[in-house]
Design a protein around this nucleic acid. Structure first.
Length: 279
DNA sequence: CCCAAGTCCTGGTTGC
DNA sequence: TGCAACCAGGACTTGG
């Protein structure tokens, strides 16, 4: 389940290892991964161009290729993986797209593999800028985004009656939060996931802001959370799953007060929280 | 058979 | 009354 920390981990790896590689060949195994992009467009825009920059916005990965400012925007969906493999790359039933690359003039061969079991991931090619889908995103729920602060959160939550958990998952409000870190941040902030978004006080908003930042920072440090399918570009798991206080722990005891953690459904999403610590 | 996930879409409701 | 904003729920996908 790639959320902001998992995508950031992948982004950092690819920024180091993908820049300087030129696309030699495109192997598309499933046209359904393409969004607003034809198979012909994918090939003609990528072959012969080189990666010059790798970035992230929310849960989206952004790749800039030159010459001609060609952008590739990737969303990993639920189970998407981006793997960087050498000549030992092998075919796999869930490989959707493979870019065969060459590093430098006569350098080594690499393969950038987009693998996705559940088929929710998407790849989009565009010129002059990344995907239009980025336009509706709120600021990243993480420190480096200067727009992200309690004031902004307050303005977006004012008057909202939907549960705060659902609003945190709305990428138009803040970007990068998924089901795992929404539950974890609400636990850290001592807030019930069921609270109407507009009912949070100023100090509660500050706590929530701080909780999101601290949980994101810790998860990035742990190189992500490997609950089900997530791995980094080398296929290695992260370690954040061992640090989770509530997600996946329904029926177990609260690490803070010892009460039994409750599971319920909020906005159609499984939600775990402590009925004593979170009010 | 149902569950999990993230995003998009739809249809119904609320509030100005 | 009309309209936009809001909210809930379903579709999509497939292995466990």
């Amino acid at each position: 389940m790639p959320e902001l920390p998992e995508v950031e981990t992948i982004c950092r790896q690819l920024a180091q290892r993908l820049v300087g590689c030129v696309v030699e060949e495109v192997e598309l195994a499933d046209t359904a991964v393409l969004l607003n992009t034809s198979k012909e467009e994918l090939t003609s825009q990528l072959v012969g161009r080189g990666f010059t920059r790798v970035g992230r916005r929310g849960k989206f990965l952004l790749f800039l290729l030159e010459p001609g400012e060609v952008w590739v925007t990737v969303h990993l969906g639920m189970t998407g993986q981006l793997l960087l493999q050498g000549d030992d790359a092998v075919s796999h039933p869930h490989n959707r797209l493979v870019l065969r690359l060459r590093r430098g003039q006569c350098g080594t061969r690499e393969h950038l593999v987009f693998r996705d079991m559940r088929k929710f991931g998407r790849v989009e090619v565009s010129q002059g800028g990344p995907s239009d889908r980025l336009r509706s995103l709120g600021p990243d729920a993480w420190e480096p985004d200067p727009q992200y602060d309690p004031d902004f959160l307050a303005s977006r939550l004012e008057g909202r009656k939907a549960p705060i958990k659902s609003l945190l998952l709305d990428q138009r409000i803040v970007a990068g939060v998924g089901n795992i870190y929404a539950d974890e941040a609400l636990f850290r902030a001592g807030l019930s996931p069921l609270r109407p978004g507009g009912s949070l006080s100023r100090s509660e908003l500050e706590d929530l802001c701080e909780a999101l930042q601290s949980v994101m920072a810790k998860a990035i440090e742990a190189r992500g959370c490997s609950i089900s399918d997530y791995v980094d570009t080398d296929g290695r798991a992260g370690s954040m799953q061992t640090c989770l206080a509530v997600y996946g722990r329904a029926g177990q005891t609260c690490v803070r007060c010892g009460s039994t953690l409750i599971r319920c459904v909020v906005g159609g999403r499984g939600t775990t929280y402590c009925p004593v610590c979170q009010r």
